[in-house]
Amino acid sequence: MTSTTSTTHLRQGLARELAARGLLTDPARRAAVEAVLRELFLGDVVFRSNGTHWEPARREQLGEDEWLRMVYSDTTWVTQVDGISAQEAAGPVSGRPTSSSTLPSLVVRMLELADIREGDRVLEIGTGTGYSTAVLCHLLGDEAVYSVEYDQELAATAAQHLRAAGRSPHLVVGDGLGGHQDGADYDTVIATCAVRTIPPSWLWQLRDGGSITTTISGWMLGSGLIRLVLDEEGVARGRFAADPVSYMLARPHERPPRPTFYAHPGSTRTARMSPDLLDDWTGLFVAQLGAPSAELVRTAAGPALVDAATGSQAWTEPDGNGWTVHQDGPLRLWDQVEDALDAWQQAGAPDQMAFGMTVTEWDQVVWLGAPEGPCWRLPV
């Protein structure tokens, strides 16, 4: 298909844009962005939000020049919603995105944080469209890249994209939370999906000194980006980055079906913390640490928390002078959230760079300031 717009020019323009923002300081990574044809990984249709639904945006309707300008913008393009691919959609659909082509600046940022070097063997969790896999192949060579995709349809499509790009990494269809033992030991595990906790298999398949770069998220959808380094004792440690980065949760870590929320009166008290803190990027992350099994529900009155396993709930409403919280069920969810937020505020409400994480096969702890400071155990 021909176009009056040069894709070479667009790729170079994208690289210049990212470099001007300080995101492409490494010549090898810049060369990869300039070399990989992103249009090969998006097919001919993507989803765009209209505020309430996801509408298919079709190449043939937009025209070639507009399509390519869209492809080479620094934007995440949703390619699947609740298992429905953009190619299959006859019209607007509703639901949650389940796959996307991540914005190039985030692909580059993940590679930067992972500190991938020539000669490394990398395990990528989440092949997706295959774009980030192709960038890894350009940097390291096809033989050094192993990529696991959970969704069979996505995996087949990504394989087609990569063949079209002239790339042949090791592609695996399966649960990325189990890693891929056949390629171990890896220098780096890099995840293009979020996890609630670090799967032990990722630790087992790393060499000593190897690293894991991923986002830690949860059912409130608070996220923290981190690089963990494995020592010779089998303990992985690291500090979170400040970047406001989020990925879709790995499918086995996804939220369970939520029961219908009813505002049970329960026990009532004045809230010590404003629920507005949950609108802060780090505040939401901290709240999630305090109540890791709760899902956040936005209501007309204010934020509510629902625990699917126990039926516990907490909901807030303004009372003229502040906020009232109602709690019902065996877990005092708002108490847990307020305790975590109080520890964070007493430390000066720092961003996520103040937080770190220690991971072993049997325990995973996020801490504030230092390992001996306030800490929260993740569900394992």
Rank of each mutant, 00 (worst) to 15 (best):
A294S: 01
N321F: 12
Q152W: 04
E17C: 06
A343R: 14
A287R: 08
R58K: 10
T324Q: 13
D208N: 06
V297C: 05
G224S: 04
S101M: 09
Q327W: 09
Q160E: 14
R16I: 03
M110S: 02
L368D: 10
G43H: 12
S99F: 03
D151C: 09
H253F: 07
V145K: 01
S267G: 12
D351Q: 13
L305T: 05
A89V: 09
P303G: 07
A263Y: 14
N321P: 04
R58S: 09
S201Q: 11
E60T: 11
G348N: 15
G322L: 14
T324F: 07
R163Y: 01
G302R: 02
V195A: 05
Q288K: 04
I216W: 04
P374Y: 13
L177Y: 04
P56K: 03
R239Y: 15
G130T: 05
A57C: 11
R121Q: 00
A291G: 01
A114D: 08
P104W: 03
D142N: 10
D328A: 11
L378Q: 03
M220D: 02
E34T: 04
E64W: 11
M353V: 13
P97S: 08
L42G: 11
D185L: 10
T5Y: 04
G13I: 00
P199V: 05
V148Q: 00
H253T: 07
V189A: 00
H180E: 12
S274Q: 14
I190S: 01
R69M: 13
E17N: 12
W219T: 06
W367Y: 15
V148W: 00
Q327I: 09
D82H: 05
L10F: 05
T260F: 10
V46I: 12
S94N: 04
V33F: 08
L206Q: 01
E17F: 07
T127K: 01
S132E: 15
V36T: 06
L68N: 04
P292V: 07
T52R: 12
L111Y: 06
E143L: 14
H180C: 06
L140H: 03
I212C: 02
T360K: 08
P303F: 11
A191P: 00
A308N: 06
T270L: 12
P252D: 12
T282N: 00
R227G: 07
A134K: 05
M357P: 01
M357K: 01
P350T: 07
P330L: 10
G329Q: 08
R227W: 12
N321W: 11
D115R: 09
G22M: 13
R239T: 14
G329T: 10
E372F: 02
D243F: 07
E60Y: 13
A155E: 14
L228F: 05
R16N: 12
S3A: 10
